[in-house]
Amino acid sequence: MLLIPCPYCGPRPEIEFSYGGEAHIARAADPRRVDDAAWTSFLYLRSNRRGDHAERWRHAHGCGRFFNVVRNTNSDHFLATDKIGEPRP
């Protein structure tokens, strides 16, 4: 089980969290103006990196807030964590 560093509450066990998938995938401001390729990319294409991966978690059974982390997907070590809206580490 992972020990996840919530930027608001500190390290907590994984079962308190839900996973939010890859971070920094922004929905287009005006979806009507987006072509099929961009829409496919937003909905389905993921970097799925082997290595350092930027992703979102939500402290569902704690403070309830979303935050971003960088985790290495080979070792599962957390390398950085930041609050939503802060610059990307």
Binding site: M1, L2, E14, Y19, H53, D76
Partner: peptide, 13 residues
């Protein structure tokens, strides 16, 4: 597991 990983290892829970 809930998250992306290449570790070939899953959690005990």
């Amino acid at each position: 597991d809930a998250y992306i990983s290449y570790s070939q290892r899953g959690a005990l829970h």
